[in-house]
Design a protein around this nucleic acid. Structure first.
Length: 569
RNA sequence: GCGCCUGUAGCUCAGGGGAUAGAGCAGCGGACUUCUAAUCCGUUAGUCGAGGGUUCAAAUCCUUCCAGGCGCACCA
């Protein structure tokens, strides 16, 4: 809790030759709560005071002996640390009142003050199936979108569809040669994918197919009617399939600005680049030399005049800045494209755009099989839809076994099944590769979304049995919460706001995900050791307020991860 | 060859300058006539990839090496 920290910062600053802000920076949370709740390490003072740190801690504590503040009750030296202990009653009242009063808003702040933050995420390539590989961008991006909104930014979800490029040349060639109307009508994305795989297989034997594909893409760029017709159909059919998955996941984008959206701007981008004189012709292609910056040079226009991925990304970046005047612009794209974004941002910088530094690539590791990486081209891939359906199915089976009388089984199964898949992707640091393992995906015990959801459902169950009118705020009954389990849980509840901020600033939803596991764990300990309904009236009231606040924190946190918290499961 | 990322318990991973390095899974042993046992309690387990350096203090920062992953001009 911020007020507690600030108070301690003030107190220490008065005693030593440091500014409150400097003290605040040094304060840390002790590894074990028996040490205290906030520690001031005295090492840095040792030089200026010419005394050993333990002595400084001791002297400081003597100056504070007998004193107490609003939220702390004592300061005790332990070795080189001065450890502040909270006043549990004052602290609990403050934290729980905040949760009580802010409700669904608890944890949110207004750091962003309405500034725009476009978040480029999900961004599947049309005509490729939506594999589990794409789930990472989708789930991480969506969480960041929600988290930035919670901090008072105006998040703008942009689905930068891969709806342009040579792959359309390939699809057109494949469809013209081997395609069948009926199959395309029936299962468009699956079928286009088959064609795509087939194209690559045949192109290995007959490289002229690649030339043919390139020339069809060139036609597409020139507005050739036949090419455009194919493109339109392929795009439209794919989009419909994607939207059903987004619907299932509860995701809506502000914009579906795919790569094709920037086509009209490409000439202008090339003009700007040439005006600035940062590009040069090389063997008929247009290049920007990045050697001086220790980066490989990039090509903006091919020999045949067609543009590349980065050209369209330049256009997109400029468009986003002109349209949204963003505070930050996020690209939630796999780590394998790190170099691409370094080049993109460097070119923006060379163009003199000072906002280039506000563009952030948020990379993440790949999902791999035990045997190796997934490959769209080779057809080695697991479809996201299959993963989601199997996960929901597993949740359904477990509910059938554990809670057969549940009224709305389907709702709970969806929440748990989808939550499991999302959480699996969010709970670990995004930069690490993930090994895809059905057993792990379908395991709902331990550090999983189900654990958090289960805790939430348990709380809801107790609150239902208590009856709603029991829940009224009362300072007095909160003071009765003195058990270790209670205090520990309250301290955890206090952390939600700062965890959301850390998640946003480090672009790591995993910080929030792990925090929710901690809260759920603290609650489950309390659940087993501190009976609520059977306690004496006032203590019962206090505990009801506590678990109600816990429910609020779990629900608010899960919501920011895009996970639904069912009331029963 | 060059660049970026990763290496922590049997497995999957937290911790990313500070106090005895923590969880989950798996294993073993316990707890359901009591608020949902998708839970809880106990227990086993670690040269923090290796060497060197900086620091009062290094799993954490720097450096070299090793192992794995990902990239490196006409794909996205």
């Amino acid at each position: 809790m911020q007020k507690f920290k600030e108070e301690v910062g003030q107190v220490v600053a008065q005693l030593v030759s440091l500014e409150p802000a400097e003290v605040l920076n040094l304060l840390e949370v002790p590894p074990d709560p028996t040490y205290g709740d906030l520690a001031f390490p005295c090492f840095t003072l040792a030089k200026s005071m010419k005394k050993p740190p333990p002595l400084i801690a001791k002297e400081l504590s003597e100056k504070l002996s007998g004193q107490k503040g609003q939220f702390w009750e004592k300061a005790i030296p332990v070795g080189p640390y001065l450890n502040f202990h909270i006043d549990p009653k004052a602290y609990s009242r403050e934290v729980m009142r905040q949760v009580w009063e802010q409700g669904n808003e608890y944890g949110k702040t207004n750091l962003g003050q309405g500034a725009n933050v476009p978040v480029d995420y999900s961004s599947p390539n049309i005509a490729k199936p939506f594999g589990v590989g794409h789930i990472r961008s989708t789930v991480i991006g969506h969480a960041l979108y929600l988290i930035y909104n919670a901090l008072g930014y105006n998040s703008i979800g942009i689905n930068h569809l891969g709806d342009w490029g040579t792959q359309f040349g390939k699809l057109i060639v494949a469809f013209k040669r081997w395609g069948e109307e009926q199959l395309l009508e029936d299962k468009p994305v699956d079928y286009l994918y088959q064609l795509y795989v087939e194209f690559h297989r045949k192109a290995e034997e007959d490289p002229s197919l690649d030339d043919e594909a390139r020339s069809w893409f060139k036609k597409l760029e020139n507005g050739d009617e036949e090419a455009v017709d194919y493109w339109n159909r392929f795009r439209q059919l794919s989009l419909e399939t994607y939207e059903s998955i987004y619907g299932l996941l509860g995701i809506e984008f502000e914009y579906y600005h795919g790569e094709s959206h920037y086509n009209q701007m490409l000439d202008r981008v090339i003009d700007i680049v040439q005006e600035k004189g940062i590009a040069k012709e090389s063997e008929g292609a247009l290049m920007v030399d990045l050697e001086p910056y220790n980066l490989p040079s990039v090509m903006l226009r091919k020999q045949d005049g067609a543009t590349l991925y980065i050209t369209r990304d330049l256009a997109a970046a400029i468009y986003r800045h002109e349209t949204f005047a963003f505070a930050r612009s996020l690209y939630v794209v796999g780590a394998e494209q790190t170099l691409h974004f370094q080049q993109l941002f460097k070119v923006l910088e060379l163009l003199g755009f000072e906002w280039a530094s506000k563009c952030v690539h948020v990379p993440f590791g790949m999902i791999r099989f035990k045997e190796g990486r997934m490959s769209t081209r080779a057809g080695k891939i697991i479809l996201l839809e299959e993963v989601l359906q199997r996960s929901i199915e597993m949740a359904r089976a477990i509910i059938e076994e554990k809670n057969p009388d549940l009224e709305d089984k389907e709702n709970a199964a969806q929440a748990v099944g989808l939550g499991a898949v999302r959480f699996g992707d969010l709970s670990n640091d995004r930069v690490k590769n993930i090994e895809f393992d059905w057993e792990k995906v379908l395991d709902f015990s331990g550090e999983t979304a189900a654990y958090i959801q289960y805790s939430h459902a348990r709380i809801c169950s107790i609150l239902r049995k208590a009856g709603g009118d029991f829940l009224q705020w009362d300072d007095r009954v909160v003071s009765l919460l003195v058990e270790d389990e209670e205090i520990c849980l309250i301290k955890s509840l206090a952390l939600l706001p700062e965890k959301i901020i850390t998640s946003a600033e480090s672009y790591r939803p995993s910080v929030l995900a792990r925090y929710l596991i901690d809260v759920a764990r603290d609650f489950n300990r309390l659940y087993h050791n501190c009976p609520v309904l059977s306690s004496e009236a006032e203590l019962k009231h206090g505990r009801l307020l506590l678990i109600s606040a816990t429910r609020q924190v779990l629900a608010n946190g899960l919501a920011l991860l895009g996970i639904i918290a069912p009331e029963k499961m």
